[in-house]
């Protein structure tokens, strides 16, 4: 069974890039446009990992991570946040919310796969 990864980003191009890269590596990808959408989709789909942007309308990445960690099924899944180097404080906030790791934007497909492999195996 291919592992399912959810990519949450308000930018369609980032979602597309993440989804394309991960699908190429054999993962199944679920897309969500923001935190609210992600939480809604989580109720229907079982996922193994989440990659989320931090800056999003409706519900941002921090709020999403907190929400996901509150769900018993997702208490221990890897959650990787997409950050920029100017957001060090956000990174810390994300970590305290329960993020497993981060990817600094901009990133290349290889870097994304390396991180996914690192936290998901």
């Amino acid at each position: 069974m291919a592992k399912v990864i959810m990519t949450v980003d308000d930018s369609a191009s980032v979602r597309q890039m993440v989804a394309f890269t991960l699908k190429g590596a054999g993962y199944t990808v679920v897309e969500a446009v923001d935190g609210k959408d992600a939480l809604a989709k989580l109720a229907q789909t079982q996922i193994n990992m989440m990659i989320t942007d931090l800056n999003m309308p409706n519900l941002d990445g921090i709020g999403l991570i907190k929400g996901v960690r509150a769900m018993p099924a997702y208490k221990f899944i890897p959650i990787v946040m997409l950050t920029t180097e100017s957001q060090d404080s956000k990174k810390q906030e994300g970590k305290s919310a329960g993020a497993t790791g981060w990817i600094v934007k901009p990133f290349k497909p290889d870097q994304l796969l390396a991180v996914v492999k690192k936290v998901l195996g």
């Binding site: 308000d10 191009s13 800056n55 901009p106």
Partner: peptide, 18 residues
């Protein structure tokens, strides 16, 4: 302000990736 920042942020992030 948040919207402006996010727009810039996304343009930057995705721009570099592509």
């Amino acid at each position: 302000i948040g919207r402006v920042f996010r727009a810039m942020h996304t343009v930057k992030g995705s721009g570099a990736m592509f």
